[in-house]
Design a binder for these strands. Structure first.
Length: 333
DNA sequence: CAAACGTGGGT
DNA sequence: TACCCAAGTTT
């Protein structure tokens, strides 16, 4: 806690006059996403949706457009649902017990602890990637990453070590220590306040802890999309959720390559769990059919968008990129 | 419990 | 280039 006060981070946007709402928003955005990526999104979000009420009364399309590019879009859909939930179930005031916090859509054990700590300044243990790395090294914990046994051990440590007074300073401390000193590669052990107590440092196992995750092979998938562009408009469909890019507007996805169609373009996109080879086919008529997640075909909301106002529409990043590249290309030829 | 769920930064 | 993985949650 002393280290946190002297060397921790204090100037992040969500640390300035934090409310339960702003802490909630920042914590959801920060899930699996780096601080530097989140900062501009957080600032725009708080401008556009400054309060729980503003968010609850916004349309899903508005919310998705603000989230566009951040990824893991269920976070945005859940955040909007969460605003309605807190208003309906708690009269617009965040609950303070961990169990009630975890009942909020999109809020799991980590985020519940973070809201307790950072917004309510109450006892709120947290375990995230930073904390796992820090504790695994400090206490020399081997174990399959993300196994229940490994997680159980870490949460138990967090619950024991987190103080009941000024919990927020401790929680921010372990977060910042993991993020800035006990880093994945080339940790700054000479700057670490607990170096003398660190099992991994004493036994020369910094590089081995936490244990590496076993990697799975990444499948390769082909996706077919249709391109229908009548006079400066582009035909898009709203994707269903759950499923990849759920809630975003996208080129209609086809079950197969259409017969006798002309290829408008193609691109490769890397997801965490698979590689997508997208082929985009010219269509003279709009395609209302779309492939759903389970490979079934359904009808989705469909709309023509002015090519000049795609900025205010939530599209998957590679699809938006493809459209913009193609428009620019056409302008030159 | 494994797998789904996005995108981009760092080495 | 090819990985790893980042303030995780849900199914």
């Amino acid at each position: 806690m002393q280290w946190q006060t002297q060397h921790g981070r204090h100037d992040l946007p969500w640390q300035q006059s934090p409310s339960a709402y702003s802490v909630h928003v920042s914590e959801i955005m920060l899930q699996q996403t780096q601080v530097s990526t989140v900062i501009p999104y957080f600032e725009r979000w708080m401008q556009r949706f400054p309060s729980l009420d503003a968010l609850a009364s916004a349309s899903e399309d508005d919310v998705m457009a603000q989230w566009q590019g951040l990824g893991y879009y269920s976070r945005a859909r859940n955040l909007r649902k969460a605003a309605a939930h807190v208003i309906a179930e708690h009269g617009g005031e965040y609950p303070d017990c961990l169990q009630a916090l975890q009942a909020i859509p999109g809020v799991g054990r980590y985020t519940a602890g973070a809201i307790r700590s950072f917004a309510l300044q109450q006892y709120g243990p947290i375990v995230d990637g930073n904390v796992k790395r820090l504790y695994a090294r400090l206490f020399g914990i081997d174990g399959e990453p993300n196994s229940s046994a490994f997680n159980r051990t870490l949460w138990q440590l967090a619950e024991q070590l987190t103080p009941h007074n000024a919990s927020h300073i401790y929680s921010q401390g372990v977060l910042d220590l993991g993020a800035t000193v006990c880093t994945k590669s080339q940790p700054k052990c000479s700057e670490c306040p607990v170096q003398s107590e660190c099992v991994a440092h004493a036994t020369g196992r910094i590089e081995q802890l936490p244990n590496p995750k076993k990697k799975r092979e990444k499948p390769f998938r082909v996706g077919h999309f249709s391109w229908h562009q009548p006079n400066q408009h582009i035909h898009l469909v709203k994707r269903s959720s759950p499923g990849i890019w759920g809630g975003l507007w996208c080129l209609p996805e086809l079950p197969d390559a259409p017969k006798d169609a002309e290829l408008a373009g193609e691109f490769i996109h890397q997801f965490t769990h698979y590689t997508l080879h997208a082929k985009v086919w010219r269509a003279s008529t709009p395609q209302h059919l779309s492939v759903k997640d389970d490979n079934s075909v359904g009808y989705l909301a469909t709309q023509l968008f002015d090519l000049n106002q795609l900025d205010q529409t939530g599209l998957p990043t590679p699809i938006k990129q493809f459209i913009q590249d193609r428009i620019a290309l056409k302008r030159h030829t």
